[in-house]
């Protein structure tokens, strides 16, 4: 885990560089509109990183406001462009992967005598394929984040949905001696919501909790109906917790403290987008060293119009 400021800056710079690359690629391949869009985004990212650099010297409040504003603008722009850029990048990625695999096949067929160099070439080919797959995970996440998947509203038995997802996580959790505790309020009313989207959120949160605990500990998932009749779900764990200076960033796209290749930092961003689109709210609380707790509140039915209000 590297320092917070450092990770942020690095991610921002990387995003900027990636977007510059995408812009150049798009413009060269004749897709000028998308290219220019990517260029704007790249500029914006670059600007943000400069901000973060200067943040150290500034009082907290002041930069926070600027930062918020920037963040919303950036997210809005990103939503529209991400899908396009991800699509365009997916094609060359697929070709790179195919070519790498083909090269491997040709090598095998050529029956070249086994030498250390040959082994190295093979290793390198394998690495190319792996890195392409990583890049594709990222573009897939981006597409998912940007995709306006309109909720389809049906009656949902939330307790049952949670029991199913907990059972799915439990097997793997047990292997690392993590207990999954359920405190589900009986007799909850059915809610009008989107079950597959909720499953995605619950799985993401349970998976984060499992990763934070590592081994030996517990995850507690609870449901209840609050006084205002909304349904409240909490997922608490006994894991590493989230340092106070990081907690406001965890819902940002691409924010991750996990090793490269293990997390894309999109799980919570996607989850928040989903919960907002269902008229709900999601928050996180944590004291370092004492685990983390995520709280979702959902209306019995989404108010009309709410779907368009919040995708970021």
């Amino acid at each position: 885990m590297s320092g917070p400021g450092k990770t942020d800056r690095l991610i921002s710079y990387l995003t900027a560089i990636l977007l510059f690359g995408a812009a150049v690629f798009l413009i060269i391949s004749g897709n000028t509109v998308l290219g220019l869009g990517a260029l704007c985004l790249a500029g914006l990212s670059w600007f943000t990183s400069r901000r973060l650099l200067r943040r150290q010297g500034k009082p907290d409040r002041e930069w926070l406001l600027d930062e918020r504003l920037l963040q919303t603008q950036k997210l809005a722009a990103m939503g529209e462009l991400a899908a396009g850029v991800a699509h365009e990048i997916n094609n060359p990625l697929a070709i790179i992967r195919q070519e790498a695999e083909w090269t491997g096949q040709v090598l095998r067929q050529a029956e070249i005598p086994e030498t250390p160099q040959l082994a190295e070439v093979r290793d390198s080919l394998r690495e190319i394929v792996q890195q392409v797959d990583r890049a594709r995970d990222i573009t897939a996440g981006l597409l998912n984040l940007a995709r306006k998947r309109e909720p389809v509203i049906q009656k949902v038995d939330l307790n049952r949905l949670i029991r199913d997802m907990a059972a799915l996580v439990e097997k793997e959790a047990k292997a690392s001696n993590i207990q999954v505790i359920r405190r589900l309020q009986e007799g909850l009313p059915l809610i009008e919501s989107d079950a597959p989207l909720l499953r995605q959120v619950i799985l993401n949160l349970l998976n984060n909790a499992r990763q934070a605990v590592g081994k030996d500990g517990s995850i507690t998932i609870s449901t209840r109906q609050a006084q205002d009749r909304r349904i409240v779900i909490t997922i608490a764990d006994t894991g590493s917790g989230i340092p106070p200076e990081l907690i406001r960033h965890i819902f940002d796209p691409f924010f991750t403290t996990k090793e490269p290749g293990t997390g894309t930092g999109l799980g919570l961003a996607i989850s928040r987008g989903i919960i907002h689109s269902l008229g709900g709210d999601i928050t996180a609380a944590s004291r370092a060293g004492e685990g983390a707790e995520f709280t979702i509140s959902l209306p019995l039915r989404p108010e009309t119009g709410v779907r368009h209000a919040a995708t970021a």
Binding site: R149, V169, R199, Q200, L203, N204, L206, G267
Partner: peptide, 20 residues
């Protein structure tokens, strides 16, 4: 074989449910 990763992947790709 319950796998959380593949469950997340499936739901993300638009599956309706992921059942053991």
């Amino acid at each position: 074989h319950a796998s959380v990763e593949s469950g997340i992947q499936g739901m993300q790709l638009g599956a309706f449910d992921y059942v053991m």
